[in-house]
């Protein structure tokens, strides 16, 4: 199984240099059928990553640049009167795709944001009483600018919870940046499809069969209940987060070619799964998460 995932990783690392963990987390999120939130400054390679993912998986790809005047219909589509047929016809919006890059999602008004988030959760769009199903798989990669930038509408906590993971690409290493300057530019490299659609859904269903031992489940429970009982967090983790932690750990183990989940797997995905749900600042979350690790004993 993991040879297929490895080829994906290798291909992606030719366009995104030196960001192996983040790329793995993105794939992890995809394997878990969860949506991904990338919080980063402009120009860090968010588009490259999402584009690359769509290409190697052979999925259809759309990009929407969110602005403050973007309307819900600009995403979901609208019903237009067709004068030839004398009837209303539904025009699919950009959301009808397999990979959607929602760029700078926090620049749009809350109304537009929630239209997208509804589509993400239900995987369908309801317009004038008609339900339109979104294609399978449906994977949203939303990017968001750090909240302190002006003109942003932060996503409400309830909607942040709908994102499976949040990752932050961060600045590239000097070597990687040198490569970029020298013109070996990622966007020019064309990626080819490396995986059939069927393989992806096979992998997705294989996650459920991963071995997870009692003590690892206990560790997830301990971590989650620590966020609830310690009183340090305003928004503790929900049961949805616990489920996400379990699934993500399994996917992470699968990416690493194992059929069992370890404590290290849980710790590897915990910042990405829990960071935004606990409303932590992406740049500072590691310090706080290390504190959590230091206070929750690992029962091996």
């Amino acid at each position: 199984m993991n040879t297929k995932i490895n080829t994906l990783l290798e291909a992606l690392s030719t366009v995104i240099y030196d960001k192996q963990p983040q790329v793995k987390l993105a794939i992890c999120s995809l394997l878990c059928k969860g949506h991904l939130l990338i919080e980063d400054l402009p120009g860090m390679g968010k588009t490259t990553l999402s584009h690359g993912l769509a290409e190697v998986l052979g999925l259809t790809y759309q990009r929407v640049q969110f602005t403050s005047d973007l309307l819900p219909a600009d995403i979901t589509g609208s019903t237009i009167f067709n004068t030839d047929k004398q009837s209303f016809v539904f025009h699919e919006g950009p959301v009808f795709t397999q990979v959607l890059l929602a760029d700078e999602i926090n620049r749009a008004s809350p109304k537009t944001q929630s239209a997208l988030l509804e589509a993400m959760e239900e995987r369908q769009v309801t317009m004038d009483g008609q339900t339109h199903h979104l294609p399978e798989p449906f994977f949203v990669i939303a990017t968001q600018n750090p909240l302190h930038q002006s003109g942003t509408h932060p996503l409400p906590e309830s909607q942040l919870d709908r994102f499976f993971m949040r990752v932050s690409l961060g600045y590239p290493s000097k070597d990687a940046e040198k490569k970029l300057i020298l013109g070996d530019h990622g966007r020019k490299t064309t990626l080819t499809q490396l995986m059939e659609l069927g393989t992806l859904s096979e992998l997705q269903s294989a996650i459920d069969e991963m071995e997870i031992k009692e003590q690892v489940v206990q560790y997830i429970l301990d971590l989650v209940s620590f966020t609830r009982e310690s009183g340090l967090f305003k928004d503790p983790l929900s049961p949805r987060a616990s489920i996400a932690l379990g699934t993500a750990s399994k996917a992470w183990a699968m990416i690493h070619g194992r059929n069992y989940v370890t404590h290290d797997d849980v710790q590897a995905v915990f910042p990405a799964v829990a960071g935004h749900r606990l409303n932590l600042d992406a740049t500072e979350q590691f310090r706080i998460i290390d504190d959590i690790y230091a206070q929750v004993p690992v029962q091996m």
């Binding site: 370890t262 404590h263 290290d264 710790q267 690790y293 230091a294 206070q295 929750v296 004993p297 690992v298 029962q299 091996m300």
Partner: peptide
Amino acid sequence: DNTKTPGQ
């Protein structure tokens, strides 16, 4: 140290 995972 009981807060470290095997990997750590």
